[in-house]
Design a protein around this nucleic acid. Structure first.
Lengths: 136, 136
DNA sequence: TAGTTAATAGGAATCATTCCTATTCTTAAG
DNA sequence: CTTAAGAATAGGAATGATTCCTATTAACTA
């Protein structure tokens, strides 16, 4: 990865940032690639990804990820939220605030022109054992 | 897909459900496959996926998905939540309840043994134009 | 017991993303 | 202005989770 040292300027990277600043469409890498293909006929998708990573590291843009690359499954039980441990990748069930989420969903539907049917609330941080391990 | 008609019993599917009910680890398909490989030497990963889909449709298990298959990007601005339109796949920025999320995060950290640093709240439903289109 | 049809195994195909390498470009020094 | 150094790029191969396809196997039913 190309962090740490000073970065050289790059027309492609500048244009990617401009594009993202000019739209509220939350584009995918492929969309950006399509947009810039005319302007940079030799543009490569890999380079779009590379520059997106750099821009994220610079704090200029944010990545809205689908979460991890693989799906997980659980038996059906009472509704609950999850805590994703960023240290060990565990997913912990939380008993907490399902009602709070429903409340927020209602509030959204009252105030806005949308019709939200459900919401997903996920916490990120450290699970119990990883919190314990940090006492060193 | 094999829905609609009556489903035949299946040792593999039964065991997958048992496994998921016996653990709170939120396994991946690959993990399930590894677990059952000894028991069913000829088990295929494709069949694990197939049975997971069936179990989800039956409502016996839930899929914790990473969201969509591709990542999206946005320029950095004020923190906000998103509404994902399930009809047109648009992602809409919401102004609403960022403080509420922080509040919930704090509450979680006070009550539990975890250390959550951030949370993600996403709403799913219909965006403005898709709500409008439904007036038919 | 035989026939029908679902379930399965196995592997090929997909698709977003990452990785690798040779080439090109930018920049700074001489 | 020229050139050397190294970053940025293009292009394509590799990866990894998931889906799709097909021939085979197994379970229910008449």
């Amino acid at each position: 990865m190309t962090t740490g040292g000073k970065l050289r300027s790059s027309k492609q990277r500048d244009r990617i940032l401009e594009l993202l600043r000019a739209t509220d469409e939350h584009p995918t890498a492929a969309w950006i690639y399509d947009q810039l293909k005319a302007e940079f006929p030799r543009l490569s998708l890999g380079n779009v990804y590379r520059n997106l990573h750099i821009l994220v590291e610079q704090g200029a843009i944010e990545k809205i990820e689908g979460g991890s690359t693989f799906d997980r499954y659980e038996a059906v039980g009472t509704p609950h939220c999850h805590l994703v441990c960023e240290s060990c990748d565990a997913i912990v069930d939380l008993e907490l605030p399902m009602s709070a989420v429903e409340e927020l969903t209602e509030r959204l539907n009252e105030n806005g022109p949308y019709r939200a049917t459900r919401a997903r609330l996920e916490f990120y941080g450290l699970c119990e054992s990883c919190v314990a391990e940090e006492q060193d």
